[in-house]
């Protein structure tokens, strides 16, 4: 076998040393670190992007939560506003009703007072008429006209009976 010929060892070992040294120091040492840096940058970029995406997602989630909370708060405040407006309107209506009622009551009382006055006036007039009529009847019967005061008293007594 040519492989076991010791004469071929030295030149092969020398050229192996030369070429492997060129490979290690002249090729691999010049290229791999560049590649290693790019691979590290890529790894950093990818992890950074993933982290950024996660933060963005957290932000979005938080914003959605805030939005929901805002909607809920707005709904509450709208409900409160509507409730307050309704309460105010009811109070105003009740106040107006009370005012109207009291005015009506006052007018009713005045009308009743007027009515009572008119009644008493009418009653007193009836007394006068009755006294006159009674006095006329007495004059016609007796020929003598009774005293107006006595006739009035008699008429009042008869009416009161």
């Amino acid at each position: 076998m040519p492989q076991f010929d010791l004469a071929v060892f030295v030149p092969q070992l020398v050229w192996l040393t030369v070429f492997f040294a060129i490979l290690y120091f002249g090729v691999v040492a010049l290229t791999l670190p560049k590649l290693g840096r790019v691979m590290e940058t890529r790894e950093a970029t990818v992890t950074g992007d993933i982290a950024a995406a996660e933060t963005a997602k957290a932000d979005a989630d938080r914003m959605a939560e805030e939005y929901d909370a805002g909607i809920e708060a707005a709904r509450h405040s709208a409900r409160d506003t509507v409730g307050a407006a309704k309460g105010k309107a009811t109070a105003a209506l009740e106040a107006k009703l009370a005012q109207g009622n009291s005015a009506n009551d006052a007018r009713l009382a005045a009308a009743e007072a007027d009515l009572a006055g008119a009644r008493s006036r009418a009653l007193s007039e009836i007394e006068g008429v009755a006294a006159d009529v009674a006095a006329d009847i007495v004059e016609r019967l007796t020929g003598a006209r009774p005293d107006a005061t006595a006739a009035t008293a008699a008429a009042r007594g008869a009416l009161a009976a």
């Binding site: 071929v8 030295v10 030149p11 020398v14 050229w15």
Partner: peptide, 10 residues
């Protein structure tokens, strides 16, 4: 004195 020939292996 060493043989450092460039061979087909080299």
């Amino acid at each position: 004195g060493y043989d450092l020939s460039f061979t087909n292996s080299s």
